Lab assay of single mutants.
Amino acid sequence: MASQGTKRSYEQMETDGERQNATEIRASVGKMIGGIGRFYIQMCTELKLSDYEGRLIQNSLTIERMVLSAFDERRNKYLEEHPSAGKDPKKTGGPIYRRVNGKWMRELILYDKEEIRRIWRQANNGDDATAGLTHMMIWHSNLNDATYQRTRALVRTGMDPRMCSLMQGSTLPRRSGAAGAAVKGVGTMVMELVRMIKRGINDRNFWRGENGRKTRIAYERMCNILKGKFQTAAQKAMMDQVRESRNPGNAEFEDLTFLARSALILRGSVAHKSCLPACVYGPAVASGYDFEREGYSLVGIDPFRLLQNSQVYSLIRPNENPAHKSQLVWMACHSAAFEDLRVLSFIKGTKVLPRGKLSTRGVQIASNENMETMESSTLELRSRYWAIRTRSGGNTNQQRASAGQISIQPTFSVQRNLPFDRTTIMAAFNGNTEGRTSDMRTEIIRMMESARPEDVSFQGRGVFELSDEKAASPIVPSFDMSNEGSYFFGDNAEEYDN
């Protein structure tokens, strides 16, 4: 783990906690998980779902989305002020799938948001429990990260689609708070800032007046979040320049895209947490497990152990491969979309394939898809080993990566060399080191050039047997250095459309 220093740990961010010791953190995270579980059980009762239907990941996603929508204050306010045809701002819903006479049927349900809020609060001892809501947002974000390569979004903001390893959390809503900021990748933060800068260039009043003052505060806050992700002084200094700019424009845009590229080699610290679907927490609570009393951590053995003992089902389209669908969801559960496939294969105990080789589309089923041909199958979400999630980018030494994705962002704290394609990355730096950030740029390029592919990161860190909950005997895996390590390699994943 990167030293926490003055930073709060993510469990504290996750639970809005002030400084807590490890036991208190485990208890408050457990409380959050228990609340999600209780809410899910109650919703299944309301909807009269069978046990099997309640364990269907598509039903879980609909129920999670309903509660997130019920608590989305800004959108609710907007919907009330701008009524649109056929949208009731006070209601929320989605597809629920039921097994009827041996076939899967889709039923569109509609609930009062007020009623959903009441059920959620009741499951969370009367609190709004925003930490639990954020947790579900991060699960949705991790699922998107594993399912889609955001080529269009990258290109629109002047970045290269091969930089997708920097895009963790790119679909997280803005209201996801400190826990959300911690899991956002460098590219995601750059993209958010670039969008602001572009608006400022096109709209003279963007930075002016009372609204402009708020915009400015948001801009500086985002700059500080991004600065905190960088691990070298030169990158941090460049972020200070971007933040202090009187009138952010093209120079800042250039600096930010430069920094994003540099992060492929001088990786930023991005938190990883295993956020599971509500249909995993519900049955665990129903079986009598007391998360608050037992304590829970999002970055240790607990999620692995929970998945070892969970039964989750998914709808499967006619030509999809259930094992591939399982891999997709497994990666999402562990926030591992940008991790090295060699490491993932070792931990999972079966070969993890790149996205383009998977015969599976996303987990969600569109409303126009034919239910007649839908089957369902068990998702295999178990693992051979477990490993500690990392909050750091690993040290800054790398190795060759593949054509589709030119770097990785480690999820697990496991000893290995970190793949990246130096030639491709360095070719993108057209040696432009003039301007006010020239000395920093020169320094950053120097550090990137001296990074050695064969150097090892996370020295001495290994994986653990599932029986080793105290992480007492690390097993340090050895990897084939020459092997392909990137998930979005030469990829044809669908595009994420909101």
Rank of each mutant, 00 (worst) to 15 (best):
M1P: 13
Q4E: 05
G5R: 15
G5L: 02
R8E: 02
S9I: 09
Y10T: 01
Y10L: 10
E11Y: 03
E11T: 13
Q12A: 07
M13I: 09
E14Q: 07
T15G: 00
T15V: 09
E18Y: 08
R19C: 11
R19H: 15
Q20H: 09
A22L: 09
T23R: 12
T23G: 07
E24V: 03
R26Y: 04
S28T: 09
V29N: 05
K31Y: 07
M32P: 03
I33H: 03
G34V: 07
I36Y: 06
G37N: 06
G37D: 06
R38E: 09
Y40F: 11
Q42V: 08
C44F: 10
T45W: 11
T45Q: 04
K48W: 04
L49M: 14
D51P: 15
Y52G: 10
R55N: 06
R55F: 13
L56R: 01
I57Y: 02
S60P: 02
I63A: 06
R65Y: 02
R65E: 02
M66Y: 02
V67P: 05
V67F: 08
S69A: 15
A70S: 15
F71V: 09
D72H: 14
E73N: 13
R75T: 10
N76A: 15
N76W: 05
L79A: 06
L79R: 05
P83V: 14
P83G: 11
S84G: 14
G93D: 04
G93H: 08
G93K: 06
I96Y: 07
I96C: 14
Y97L: 13
Y97A: 05
R98P: 00
V100T: 13
N101V: 11
M105F: 03
M105V: 09
R106E: 05
E107P: 06
E107F: 07
L110Q: 11
Y111W: 11
D112P: 02
D112G: 12
K113Q: 12
K113Y: 03
E114M: 06
E115T: 05
E115D: 15
I116E: 03
R117A: 09
R117P: 00
R117C: 14
R118K: 15
I119D: 04
I119G: 00
W120I: 04
W120R: 10
W120D: 04
W120A: 02
W120Q: 06
W120K: 06
A123V: 14
G126N: 08
D128I: 13
T130S: 12
G132V: 09
L133K: 15
T134N: 03
M137V: 09
M137H: 13
I138L: 15
S141G: 14
L143E: 11
N144A: 14
N144I: 11
N144D: 07
D145P: 00
A146V: 14
Q149F: 04
Q149Y: 07
T151M: 14
T151P: 03
A153C: 06
L154S: 07
V155K: 04
R156M: 11
P161R: 07
P161H: 09
C164T: 13
C164F: 09
M167F: 12
T171C: 15
L172R: 01
R175V: 09
S176G: 12
G177E: 12
A178W: 09
G180H: 03
G185Q: 10
G185P: 01
T188A: 13
M189P: 01
V194Q: 01
M196W: 05
M196A: 01
K198H: 05
I201F: 11
N202Y: 09
D203E: 13
N205H: 10
W207A: 02
N211F: 14
N211M: 07
G212R: 09
G212K: 09
K214L: 14
T215M: 10
I217A: 14
I217N: 13
A218K: 06
M222N: 06
M222C: 09
C223M: 12
L226D: 06
L226T: 14
K227I: 11
K227N: 11
G228K: 03
K229A: 08
A234G: 15
Q235W: 08
K236S: 11
M238A: 14
M238H: 11
M238Q: 15
V242M: 09
V242S: 01
R243S: 15
R243Y: 02
E244V: 14
P248C: 06
G249R: 11
N250I: 04
A251W: 06
A251G: 11
E252Q: 14
D255N: 13
L256K: 07
S262D: 07
A263M: 06
L264C: 14
R267V: 04
V270M: 08
A271G: 15
A271V: 02
H272W: 07
K273I: 02
S274T: 15
C275T: 09
A278G: 15
A278P: 01
C279G: 11
G282W: 14
V285A: 14
V285S: 14
G288I: 05
G288Y: 13
D290K: 03
D290M: 04
D290R: 07
D290Y: 08
F291H: 03
E292T: 13
E292Y: 11
R293D: 13
E294M: 13
Y296P: 04
Y296G: 05
Y296H: 15
S297T: 13
D302M: 03
L307F: 14
N309W: 14
S310I: 03
V312P: 07
S314Q: 07
S314Y: 03
R317W: 05
N319W: 00
E320Q: 12
E320D: 15
H324D: 11
K325R: 09
S326E: 01
A332I: 00
A332F: 00
H334N: 12
A336W: 03
F338C: 15
F338N: 09
D340M: 06
D340L: 01
D340C: 05
L341Y: 01
L341T: 15
R342Q: 05
L344M: 07
F346P: 00
F346S: 08
K348Q: 11
K348L: 05
G349T: 04
K351L: 11
K351Y: 09
L353C: 11
P354W: 04
P354F: 12
P354R: 15
R355S: 10
R355Q: 06
K357I: 01
S359W: 04
T360R: 01
G362R: 12
V363P: 15
Q364C: 14
S367C: 13
N368R: 11
N370C: 00
T373G: 08
T373C: 14
E375L: 14
S376H: 12
T378H: 02
T378I: 06
L381H: 02
L381D: 02
W386Q: 03
W386I: 10
A387F: 05
I388L: 14
R391D: 01
R391I: 07
S392W: 14
G393Y: 03
G394Q: 08
G394W: 06
G394T: 10
N395W: 00
N395Q: 14
T396G: 15
N397E: 14
N397Q: 13
N397W: 00
R400S: 12
R400E: 00
S402V: 10
A403Y: 00
G404L: 13
I406Y: 02
I408T: 15
F412N: 09
S413L: 11
S413W: 11
V414N: 01
V414A: 08
V414Q: 08
R416C: 02
N417R: 13
N417I: 13
N417P: 11
N417K: 05
L418E: 02
P419A: 14
F420Q: 02
T423C: 00
T423D: 01
T424R: 04
T424C: 15
I425F: 09
M426T: 12
A427H: 00
F429T: 04
F429E: 02
N430F: 00
G431H: 03
N432F: 11
N432R: 04
T433Q: 07
T433C: 08
E434R: 01
S438W: 09
S438H: 07
S438D: 03
M440W: 05
M440L: 09
R441H: 13
T442F: 06
T442P: 01
E443G: 09
E443M: 12
R446F: 13
S450I: 13
S450P: 02
A451E: 12
V456G: 03
V456L: 14
F458W: 13
Q459L: 14
Q459C: 12
Q459H: 14
R461K: 15
R461S: 00
G462Y: 01
V463D: 11
F464C: 07
L466A: 14
S467K: 10
S467M: 14
D468H: 13
D468T: 05
K470R: 13
A472I: 05
S473E: 12
S473I: 14
D480T: 08
M481F: 10
S482E: 07
N483K: 13
E484Q: 09
Y487W: 10
F488P: 05
F489K: 05
F489H: 04
E495A: 08
